[in-house]
Structures are given as C-alpha cells and as structure tokens.
C-alpha cells in the first residue's frame, strides 16, 4: 500500500484529502478562526472548481503535443515542438511586432463592427417603429445575407483597393447580419401584453420605445452584438490573408511563406486568445449592464 504522505509530496495539495491526524491536530488551533477558515475554504473550493478543470485540459493538450513531437511522428517543420513555439512567441512579444499586428487587427474589427452595429440598430428600429418600411429593404438585406463576404473580396478590391476600406467593408458585411436579425427579433418580438401596460398609463410612442421596447430587446441586441463580434473577428483574419500588408492574418500568411510554422501557430494562438478575451470582456460588460436581473447564458 502506498503511504498517503509520500503521495502528498508528489501531488498538488488540493488533489489530496487531508489525513485524519492532521485534521485532529489542526482542529484545536483553528477552532477560534473557524468562521474565517470556512470562508477561506469556500473561496478556495470555488477557485479550485473554476480553474482546475480547464487548466488540466490545457495541460493535457500540451503534454500530448510535446509527446507527439518527442516521438518525431511529424517533421519539426510540420509541427514544431511547444518549446520552439513558446520561444518565438516570447521573441515576438519582446520585439513588439505581435502587439502591432494585434492592435491593427483589433482596430479594424472595432471600426467595421461599430458601423455595422449603428446601421443594424437604425434599420431594426425602423422595422419596429414603422413596420411599413420593412418590405422596402428586407429582401435586399436577405439577398446579401446569403452572399458570403469573402466572395465579394474581388469586387471590393476593384472598387476600394487593398486599403482599409476593403477590410472595413468585409467586417461590416460579416457582422451586420447577425446583429440585424437579433435586433429585429428583439424589437418586433416585444410582448404585446407589456405594451398594453404602457398604453394604459398613457405612454407616448417615444416612451413606449425607450421604456418598454428597447429594454425588452436589450438581451437580444447584446446576443447579436456578441455573435457579430465573433464573426467580424473571423472575417478580419480572412480579409488580411487575401489583401493586406499588416495585421494578424497577414502575419500568419507571411510566416507560412517564410516557412516559419512556429510563427503560424503563434498567430493562431493569439487569434484564439484575443477572440476569447474580447468575448469574455463583452460577457462581463453585459452582465454588468443587465445588473443580474436577467438569467442570461453568458457564462
């Protein structure tokens, strides 16, 4: 039988239950601080439950990657080992080239995203405030919704060149539709029974919109914004791979042409991490904004 103590030396403390003797010894000393200790233990359990499983998952993936490289199943060109990728990552961080590329891509995303949001909001509002206006643009929008933005790149390059306008347009096309559809759903799906409450209290059209329809739609609008942000982040990489001299997409393509697979993987990591971070940040802002009065699926 393996001794508990020897095992505890190898495993992280939280992985092993405390031995009965230790518990007995500690019980007397800690009785005074039991309240504090309980709170501390609860917090520890919370962090353990929250961070332990994802960290283990990531660690397992890294170990697998390391083992595959170690066994030399693929050449180091096809799959560089973790250490090499990490080293490139460090070098790119220190030189600052990574920050420049990330900054440019993020700035492009937010520009296109902001324009798309404003237009989607205005058109969605138009559908809610005067429903008669809908048919005039609805079919045109549905047509463009079914055209992938990437298929428009040749035309966009022809019309706008390979400058910023093309990228903004692609992000606009990618993020507009999920936002528009969700905003329309939020605005037109307002519960008529709640609108009647406003009618009974003599609400004007404006009050009706800003005090009932808009708050009612806010959850849908935010969902649309979150999806739209994800879409535009995907689209910018594709756009930068087709026509750009800066940005993350260009960096990846350039690294591939230079046979620097490690840099390609760094680029993919950074895309994933920045995407994840913006998404989390957005989720955090939303939960602040909705003040916890909605059960939302953000976490």
């Amino acid at each position: 039988m393996i001794k508990m103590d020897s095992m505890r030396a190898f495993w992280p403390a939280f992985f092993m239950p405390e031995g009965p003797e230790e518990r007995k010894l500690q019980a007397g000393a800690d009785r005074r601080n039991e309240g504090e200790r309980n709170v501390g233990m609860k917090q520890a359990a919370f962090w353990k439950g929250r961070f332990f499983p994802p960290l283990m998952g990531i660690a397992a993936l890294l170990v697998l990657w390391y083992l595959v490289c170690r066994m030399e199943l693929f050449s180091a060109y096809v799959l560089p080992p973790p250490a090499k990728v990490l080293d490139s990552f460090r070098k790119m961080l220190v030189s600052g080239e990574l920050f420049a590329d990330v900054g440019i891509s993020v700035a492009r995303v937010f520009k296109g995203f902001a324009i798309a949001f404003v237009l989607a909001f205005v058109l969605g509002m138009l559908r809610a405030v005067c429903p008669g206006a809908g048919p005039y643009f609805e079919y045109i929008l549905q047509f463009f919704r079914n055209v992938p933005p990437l298929s428009l790149i040749p035309l966009l390059i022809l019309w706008c060149g390979i400058g910023e306008t093309t990228k903004t347009a692609i992000i606009f096309l990618a993020s507009f539709f999920p936002m528009y559809l969700n905003i329309v759903k939020g605005f037109t799906g307002c519960d008529p029974r709640l609108l009647e409450v406003g009618d009974m209290f003599g609400y004007s059209r404006g009050e009706r919109f800003f005090r009932i329809i808009l708050p009612y739609a806010s959850a849908d609008i935010l969902v649309g914004m979150r999806i739209g942000l994800g879409y535009s982040w995907r689209a910018i990489i594709a756009a930068e791979m087709v026509a750009a001299s800066t940005g993350l997409g260009h960096m990846i393509l350039f690294a591939q042409q230079m046979s620097r697979t490690d840099k390609v993987i760094v680029g993919i990591f950074v895309i994933g991490i920045v995407g994840l971070l913006t998404d989390r940040l957005f989720a955090f802002l939303i939960s602040r904004l909705l003040k916890g009065n909605y059960a939302n699926g953000w976490d």
């Binding site: 029974r193 709640l194 009647e196 409450v197 009974m200 209290f201 003599g202 609400y203 009050e207 005090r211 009932i212 708050p215 009612y216 806010s218 909705l290 009065n293 909605y294």
Partner: peptide
Amino acid sequence: TAFVFQEPRLMPWLNVTQNILFGLR
C-alpha cells in the same frame, strides 16, 4: 384609469420599486 391584468405583467428589467413607479412616467 389604471388596469390590473389577470397576469402581473411586470417589466422584468425593473425591480419592485421601479415597477411600482412605472405608471408615473
């Protein structure tokens, strides 16, 4: 005129106080 409906019809984004004051615009 005030109306009390069969269902409560409260605004889910407002708390109790805000809901009570909803009619005062």
